[in-house]
Structures are given as structure tokens and as C-alpha cells.
Amino acid sequence: MIGVKEVEDPKKRVPLIGMIGGMATVGKHLFEKPVTVQYPEQRREMPERFRFRIFLKLDDCVGCTLCEQVCPNGSIKMQPVDRENPRNKRKIYPDVNFGTCTVCRNCQEICPTDAIYLTNVFETSRTRNSFTYSPEELALEEDKVKK
């Protein structure tokens, strides 16, 4: 069902008419609404599936290091955290360097307990030296992180 179609060149026509028509088409857009979103004042509703900020449930994390292994560019490193958790015997939790994170979602996919997950929180601007989010920061509530 895949056929071949010959493409014809546009026909020769009277000069200038098409150009004036094109200018009219461009001019017509003067009366259409702008499509831009004025960001800090207007915020577009981010879809639920939009993914950016990584969160962590400290209670669920079992310290399996799968997320560290699967992270394509080594943004996730396991850090020792002194915290009582019967499921996490080794007491290691992931931290995330958002300077290099590409939001590929592989850590969320691979996590056996769904402890690490991405959300549509995206306003995470920081200064240069604090891109690395410690496990405690990742464990913050979603509402607290939202600005």
C-alpha cells in the first residue's frame, strides 16, 4: 500500500500577485491572538505526565543502588544517611545532581519499590554550587517544593 507519488513543481503564475497575497497572509496574523505565555505572571498548567523534579520516599527506599546503576550519566550517587529504616539495612540513599540529570526517568522505571519518582514540579532554580540534592531534600513534600 506504499506507493510512489510524483511531486509537481508549483505552476508559473503572474509575478507579484502571489507575493502580495503572501504579504496579506502575514498581515492577517496581526489580528490573531499572540500565542506566547508570559511566564512568571501566567503559568501554563503542566500536564500530570510532565516530568522533572525527582522525589524520594525515604521509608520505601531499600538502598538497592539500581537507580545509581541505571542512571545514564551518573547523576545519582548513593549517600549514607543516618536514619532508622528496617528495609534499608545499608543506610544508603540516592542523591541527585540536577545539573547533569536529563530527566530520562530510568530511575523511576527501575525502582523496585517505587521509592524514587519524577513529578511535574519544575521550578527548581538554584545557584551553581547546589545542584546536588541530598536524600533529605529529595524527600521533601511536593507542596513544600512548589513555589
Binding site: 502575514v26 498581515g27 496574523h29 496581526l30 490573531e32 491572538k33 499572540p34 500565542v35 506566547t36 508570559q38
Partner: peptide, 13 residues
């Protein structure tokens, strides 16, 4: 402003 409106933007604001 005119260019922005033709291109469906807002221009300087």
C-alpha cells in the same frame, strides 16, 4: 511591536 504581532508574539512588554 508590529513584528511581534505579525509573528503572534507580544513584543517588548
Amino acid at each position: 511591536k508590529f513584528m511581534a504581532r505579525l509573528q503572534q508574539r507580544l513584543g517588548p512588554n
